[in-house]
């Protein structure tokens, strides 16, 4: 059995879903949770139900906002005061930025963007995609402890932990240390949708969308089914959509439950970024488009007529 710390980010006072995915998968280990700031008793109860023994709330000056140095300093000091074999976190925007710096404070290794793992005998062995998911490899850690692991959101799935933890909450005096790179300002995104990497449903437009305005029909569909809208590299490079929306090898790798590709031909680099989606629907006028080789349900037809019908059918089905 290993001593494991799971670092959780908070979003509007809630722990991120990836934290619960990790906790469920760590069943059988001795697992604590650390977070920066404060959370409600209700959230602590959720962590306890999923196996958290202790919930450490790190509090201190200059930790109200994320900074790579402040968070890394505070967490490193706390982790040094304990005896953890492993530190897990989500491969989110923050996790990807923070965990490499934090692990290096221990001259330790980080297995990043892991999509599955085992803890046989308290030893981590993971699987992670490389080359944007064109292949998979086994990943193991060596060298000084603790070892660090970041987990891709939506990859493990929610497996309930059969053993609840005590969920003993405590405040920890944390020290942010010197912060040279601090956030001066946050420019909010125009979209309020969940990020592509965490979305449960994604609707993506390709080159066949022809222009940015036509994405409206995808937005209409997305609104009905609660989806986030993405774009292929061809659509982004043609200026139809910003890079933040790009799915594929030079964009985001996604793994939603449902992926609807509209007018996307299915270049190798695009398929690499979305192939682990659980169910794939493709709409394309070309019956030989490569996207159909990955689609569970392919519709050969013009997206400009099919998508509005799809929106209407979903409305009927979902009663919206």
């Amino acid at each position: 059995m290993a001593n494991v710390l799971v670092f959780t980010e908070l979003h509007d006072g809630h722990v991120k879903p990836v934290t619960l995915e990790i906790l469920g998968k760590l069943a059988g280990q001795s697992t604590d949770v650390a977070l920066i700031g404060d959370i409600s008793a209700e959230q602590i109860a959720i962590l306890a139900k999923n196996g958290a023994q202790n919930v450490h709330k790190l509090k201190g000056a200059n930790l109200d906002k994320y900074s790579p140095e402040g968070y890394a300093n505070a967490l490193a000091e706390f982790i040094k005061s304990k005896n953890y074999d492993y530190v897990f976190g989500g491969a989110t925007s923050m996790g990807k930025d923070l965990l490499p710096r934090l692990s290096t404070k221990f001259q330790a290794g980080l297995a990043s963007d892991v999509v599955n793992f085992t803890m046989d005998g308290g030893v981590f062995a993971g699987t992670r995609p490389l080359f944007a998911g064109k292949c998979l490899a086994k990943v193991e850690l060596t060298g000084p402890k603790p070892h660090f692991v970041s987990i891709r959101p939506n990859a493990l799935g929610m497996t309930p932990n059969p053993t609840a933890g005590a969920g003993a909450a405590s405040d920890v005096n944390a020290n942010a240390g010197e912060i040279r790179a601090a956030i001066k300002e946050i420019i909010k995104a125009t979209s309020t949708k969940v990020d592509l990497t965490e979305a449960n449903i994604i609707v993506t437009g390709g080159r066949a969308m022809k222009n940015a305005e036509n994405f409206k029909i995808l937005n209409d569909l997305a609104d009905v089914i609660g989806a986030t809208v993405g774009a292929s590299r061809a659509a982004v490079d043609s200026g139809f959509a910003p890079h933040a929306m790009q799915v594929g090898q030079t964009g985001k790798t996604v793994a939603p439950s449902l992926y609807i590709a509209c007018g996307v031909s299915g270049a190798i680099q695009h398929l690499a970024g979305m192939r682990t989606s659980k169910v794939i629907v493709a709409i394309n006028t070309d019956p030989d488009a490569p996207i159909f080789t990955k689609a569970d349900y392919g519709i050969v037809g013009d997206l400009f007529t099919i998508v509005p019908i799809l929106t209407e059918e979903f409305k009927k089905l979902l009663g919206r």
Partner: peptide, 22 residues
Amino acid sequence: RVKYSGFKLPPEKPAGKKFDAT
């Protein structure tokens, strides 16, 4: 710090259903 082994291709999905809506 990180050791890789067992490189393999991801499992292929079985062929899906295709519908003609032309």
